[in-house]
Structure formats: C-alpha cells, structure tokens
Amino acid sequence: MTDAKPLPFVYQFAAGAVAGISEILVMYPLDVVKTRMQLQVSGGSGPQYNGVVDCLKQIVAKDGFSRLYKGISSPVVMEAPKRATKFACNDEFQKIYKREFGVEKLTQGLSILSGASAGCCEAFVVVPFELVKIRLQDASSTYAGPIDVVRKIIQKEGVLAMYNGLESTLWRHGVWNAGYFGIIFQVRSLLPEAKTKSKQTANDLLAGTIGGTIGSLMSTPFDVVKSRVQNTAVVAGQARKYNWSWPSLFTIYNEEGFRALYKGFVPKVLRLGPGGGILLVVFTGVMDFFRSVHYKD
C-alpha cells in the first residue's frame, strides 16, 4: 500500500485475510440487501423494494432477522483468500510496476494500474463463492445451504457453471480496485502527515472510506450485471438473457432505464464505503504488527 518496509507475501496474505473477515462480519447484512435490490426486475413478479430500509424490513418481517446473514458461510470462507489476494497482489504489482517503469516512488497512475491488476487476480478467486452467495441471497432461493447450491449447479448446469459470471466479475473487481487504491493514494498524499498512531488510523479510515465510495460508484453497473448473470441458470441449448457484461448493460438500460444500472448502490456504498475504511485500517494495523515482529532486532 505504501513504500514502507516490504514484507514476504505470506504476511501480506495473512493481513488481507484478517482485514477481509473483520469487514464481512460487520457489514454483511448490507450485502444481502444490495443483492436483493440488484436482482429485483422493475415490474417483475418478485418482491419490490422501495429502498434500503424497506428491503431490510421486508426481509426481517418475512424470513426473520437470521435471513440477513443467509449465505454468510460462503463469503466468510471466501473473504480470507479474496481480501488476501487483493492486498497481497496489489503490493506485489506495485513492486513489479515500480521496477518495470524504473521509478522508486509509487505514483497514482501505478496505484490505479496495480489495483486493477490485483482486482483481476481477485476475480478468479471469488467467482465460485460469489455464485453460491448470489443463489442463496435470492428471495426465491430454495437451496438448503452452500453445499446444496454447489451440488445442484454441478448436477444441472455442469462443473464449468461454477465460473458463471467470470467476465463480469473481472470487470467489477478490476474497476473497483483501480478506483479504491487510486483514490487511497491520492487522499493520503493530500492529508497532513500522521505523527501518531491514532492519527494514522484516522487517515487510513478516511482514505479507505473515500476509496471504497468511489470504487463503488465506478463498479456498481458491473456489479448489477454480475448479479443478474450469476443468478441465471445455464441451460443447454437455451440463450441466456444476461451473459456478457456490455450487452447486459445495454439490455438493462434499454428495458429498465439508467437508474437500474445503480440498483443496490446505496447499500453497496454504505457497506464498501465504511467497509473500505475498515479493510485499510485493519490491513495496515496487522502489517505494522508483522513488521514489528519481522524486523525486530
């Protein structure tokens, strides 16, 4: 993330895992709301939500409070490799690009490039977990749990269907990470240098929150498409309404209007704005701890 003393990949991976699990345990209900709103087709037969609060009320009233954590086992299992891959790959790409471009200090351009590259790597890790989560979070879901989702998808759609939505996930994660890490670099450069640990934490929380917010603004249309693609079963010989990102974007725009491309944006930004701050603070804190252990005399 910065030009601080480098650490081996294993430390970066572990710090990213801790950060990711911390964030998901706090913010998961908003992810359920985001998915429900993204799967809602205007004028469709399914539940219709008027906003975040209305969605929360309907879910709790119909299915109980526990439904807000339905499917959390999949993202909890996913968060360790997902966030670990994000931060570890971002740090590694920063080193690679600084070396390849012949610069000693990180620039905002290289931060954006490193973030986008890390996001693409992250996408390959998360697709099966995201697929399971989306199927479980759907209001019409009849699956018994994550294992049941995997078993039925493989039986009915084939093994390769577990990577349904890979292309849209690459777009989502590449764009989000480019915005997230690029904005973090810019905000950090504008903030006064932190003289104390508490001030550094405050700076990281602010930078991460702004980065998460901008990343969400940039990536939400691809997130909407990804949710639609992954919630559409693969049926042999049958064309899928939502398949590739850009055609799906135009389909949603033509049928439901521009606002439909930002369905779920409010819960997404409420989660990934503060969630981005939590990620950065925890990751930086754990990395500082690892440095104190690794470089101790």
Rank of each mutant, 00 (worst) to 15 (best):
P81I: 09
P81V: 07
K82H: 11
K82Y: 13
R83S: 12
R83W: 06
R83N: 10
A84Y: 04
A84P: 01
A84K: 01
A84I: 07
K86A: 12
K86C: 09
F87R: 08
A88I: 04
A88E: 01
A88V: 07
C89E: 03
N90A: 08
N90D: 04
N90S: 06
D91C: 03
D91S: 14
D91V: 12
E92Y: 10
F93P: 02
Q94N: 10
K95A: 11
I96S: 00
I96V: 13
Y97G: 04
Y97N: 03
K98N: 08
K98Q: 13
R99D: 01
E100K: 14
F101S: 05
F101M: 13
F101W: 07
G102F: 03
G102T: 06
V103H: 01
V103A: 03
E104N: 15
E104A: 15
E104L: 05
K105N: 13
Q108Y: 03
G109F: 02
G109V: 11
G109D: 05
L110Y: 00
S111R: 07
S111Q: 09
S111N: 10
S111D: 12
I112Q: 06
L113S: 13
L113C: 12
L113A: 15
S114Y: 07
S114P: 14
G115M: 10
A116N: 07
S117V: 12
A118G: 06
C120H: 12
C121Y: 09
C121E: 11
C121A: 15
C121Q: 10
E122I: 07
E122H: 13
E122Q: 15
E122K: 14
A123L: 10
V125D: 03
V126A: 08
V127N: 01
V127G: 02
F129I: 04
F129P: 12
E130M: 14
E130R: 09
E130V: 08
L131Y: 11
L131F: 05
V132E: 08
V132R: 11
V132H: 08
I134P: 01
I134C: 04
R135N: 14
R135Q: 12
R135I: 02
R135A: 09
S140F: 01
S140W: 00
S140R: 11
T142V: 05
Y143G: 04
A144E: 08
G145T: 08
G145R: 03
P146Q: 03
I147V: 14
D148T: 04
D148P: 10
D148K: 04
